[in-house]
Amino acid sequence: MLRYISKRLVSLSASLIVASILIFIVIEIIPGDPAAFMLGINADPDAVEALREQLGLNASLTSRYFTWVTGLLQGEFGISYTYRVPVSELISDRIVISLPLTFYALVLSTLIAFPAGIYAASKRNSLGDVSVMGLTQLGVAIPNFWFAMLLVLVFSINLRWFSAGGFPGWDQGFFPAMKALTLPAIALALPQASILARVMRSSLLDTLSEDYIRTARAKGLNRRQALWRHALRNALIPVLTIIGLQFSFLLAGGIIIENVFYLPGLGRLVFQGITQRDLIVVRSVVILLVFAVIAVTFLVDIAYAIADPRLREGSR
C-alpha cells in the first residue's frame, strides 16, 4: 500500500513540475508587455523600463521561473500587475467561492448519479431504466451555462426563490452563502450527474455479468444481495476514475458558471487577468487549479487502493 502510494506521489509530483513549466512557457509567449500595458499607450519608455525592472521582467527566463516556483512553495504568488496587491490575497478571496462550489456540485452529482445508476442497472430494460437513461441522455446534451440561465429564469426571475446572482460572503452566515451557491452548483452538477449515472449503470451491468456474481447466486444470494454485496464494490472502481475527472470538469466549468451568476470566484479573476494582461494572476490561478486537480487525482488513487486489494498489495 505504502509503495503504491509513494509511487503515485512521485508520478503526480512529476506531472505537477512539468505542468508548471508548461504554464510558465505559455504565459511567457502571451503577446504584450505588461509594463507597457499598465502604464498606458503614451507612457514614457524609461518609465516602462523602470517598471519592467521593478517587476523582475528583465531577468532571464530560467531565473524568473525559479523565482516564481520558490515563491509558490512559500505561498507567495507575487504582486498583481493591475491590482498592485499580492496575488495570494486576491486568490484567497476568490478560492473560498470556487472550491466550495466545485465540491458542492461534486457531492450533488454523486448523490444524484449513484441511486439513478444503481436503480437503472438493477431494473435493466424496464420502463424505469429506459426513462432514467433517456433523462441522462438529455442531461449530457445540455450546456451547463444555458441550463444555468434557465434556472435563473425559472427560480430567480419567475419564482423569486433565489437571487439571480452575486455572493453575500461567508461572513453573512453559512446558509445564505450556500443558498447563493445552490443554483450554480445544480447547473454544474446535473450534466455531470448524467454522465456519472450512465457510467455507474454500465459498470454495474458489466460486473453483474461476471463469473463471481454467478458464484454468489449459486451460494444462495438473491439478485439484490448479489448486487449490493458483490457487484457494487467492483463496479465502483471505474466510477472512481470518472469522479476524479469530474472534479477537473467541474472546476473548469465553474469558470463559466461564475460568469452567469456574477460570482466573484477564480473564474472571473482569470478572465480579468487575461483581458488586462495580468500574467501573474493568470498563471497563479492556473497552477493552483492544476494542483487541485492533481491532489484530487491522488485522493482517487488512494480510494482505488482501498477499493481494490490487487492494487494495495500490487507488485509483491
Binding site: E210, Y212, T215, H230, A307, D308, P309
Partner: peptide
C-alpha cells in the same frame, strides 16, 4: 480465475 470476487477475502 474469475469465479471469486477479487475485492473480498
Amino acid at each position: 480465475m474469475t469465479a471469486l470476487n477479487p475485492v473480498q477475502t
